[in-house]
Computed example of a mutant assay.
Amino acid sequence: MIRPRLLPVAIAAMAGLFVVKAESLVGLLRGGAAVVAPARAADPPPAPAPAPAPAPVSAARAPAQPPAAAPQAIPVAAPDPATAAERALLEQLRARRTEIEAREQAVVAQEVVLQATERRLARRVEELTALQQRLEALDRSRTEREEAGWRGLVRTYEAMRPRDAAAIFNELEMPILVEILDRMGERKAAPVIGAMRAEQARLVTTELARHRARRTAAN
């Protein structure tokens, strides 16, 4: 009893669904035709197909990067010839000044040495002068003593008789005899020489003349 009721309902539902689908299909066909027609009327030329995207390159096949450019050297300005010449001149002047200072120091040191040498020489001269004065004093003293001794002998022989004095003079050495007769007065010496032996008198007279000539030449 249930099946006769459900069958008509199912058939009716299927019929209605078919009608709906048919209307939808007709509407779609009408709308597509309207849209396609104007598109065809003003259809632009087909756009070029896009180029295929490049395939990703693996790290192993990646092209080597170009080497980094070497840093460019900063240009250095050429030295100024005038500045170089001035520097060379300054160096020469500095060297010359150093040389002059060294020479001045050497001259100063040499002057110090010379002054010390002069002082030593002056002291030495003073010492030698004092020594010479002492020697001269001693020589004068010796001469005076000798002269005093000769004068004493002369007075002794002058006080003797000429014959006695002549006997002694005949035996004296010539240098001593000359010194005694040279200091005797002529009036005292003449009688003594006259009483001497003739040969001794002749020799003593010759030596006495030579002695007085040498003394005169020395003075």
Rank of each mutant, 00 (worst) to 15 (best):
M1C: 06
P4F: 10
R5N: 10
A10Q: 13
A13P: 00
G16A: 12
V19P: 01
V20E: 11
V20N: 09
K21F: 13
V26Y: 14
G27I: 07
V35D: 12
A37Y: 13
P38A: 14
P38G: 14
P44W: 12
P46F: 15
P46D: 14
P48V: 04
P52Y: 13
A59M: 05
A64I: 03
P67E: 15
A68D: 06
A73K: 13
A73N: 06
P79V: 02
P79Q: 15
A84W: 08
E86C: 01
L89M: 10
L90F: 04
R96H: 08
R96D: 11
I100A: 15
A106V: 05
A109Q: 14
V112T: 09
T117F: 12
R123E: 13
V125R: 15
E126Y: 10
T129W: 10
Q132V: 03
Q132I: 05
A137F: 10
R140W: 02
R142E: 08
A148G: 02
A148D: 04
W150D: 05
W150G: 01
R155Y: 02
T156L: 10
T156Y: 13
M160P: 00
R161D: 03
D164H: 05
D164T: 03
A165S: 04
I168P: 00
I168C: 02
N170V: 02
L172Q: 08
I176L: 14
G185K: 15
E186M: 07
K188I: 00
A189T: 02
A189H: 02
P191M: 15
I193N: 01
A201M: 04
T205M: 06
T206E: 14
E207Q: 11
A209N: 12
A209I: 04
H211N: 13
A213K: 10
A218C: 01
